[in-house]
Amino acid sequence: MGLEIAGLSAGYGPVTVLRGVDFTARPGEVTCIMGRNGAGKTTLMKAIMGLLPGTGSVRVAGVEVLGLPAHRVPGHGLAWVPQGRRLFGPLTVAENLEIGGLLRGNRPEIRAHVLRLFPRLGERLGQVAATLSGGEQQMLAIARALCLEPKVLLLDEPTEGLQPSMIALIRDAVGQLRAEGVAVVLVEQRVEAVLKMADRVAFMAHGRVAEMVSAADLAPGARQFAEFVGV
């Protein structure tokens, strides 16, 4: 079931950014979203999370979540790793994870699972999040979202500005989540990363999903990268 979006329109006040987005993300798959700046990728993430008013339909595991108050959306199995991480900077690593696990009662087994995925965080539980390195902050942002035990995980440019070793680590984590049956939606601009991680790729332009193709049908020089991403 995963995530099913139909005819989603949303924006900021009088400015409409999304104009009838149709999109699906299946469990156990990584669906990448690509597009130029301003195509509506981040707006789509926010609209899915209920942070922007919208029309149309957003269903998670068959349950309609569009129109719910934003704080009730994650309870249906949606977790979001925002662009730029947006950690609770003055809070410690442990406190960030605790906020992540509020809706699941902060069960120890979830915390243990997350720390197995990112063992480095286990060594820094008492450290203030803002003082972590960029890669560690990204790990924490993902770990915090995983404390929700999501059915659908939205990742907005998680490898942005990271060194290659950190990118590999996050790629491994995404691979493991896919193996666990999570529907992963990944906003990503780097072609190489997309080709390595994605099962399917949605290309956005002008607030719509213009094309959705299997990653197996894409090569580094494919027409879609030039047309929708400009690379």
Partner: peptide, 15 residues
């Protein structure tokens, strides 16, 4: 304290 830091992200965790 979490709400103080980032209202939107706090909501995204059910607050």
């Amino acid at each position: 304290r979490a709400t103080q830091v980032d209202r939107d992200v706090a909501q995204a965790f059910g607050i």
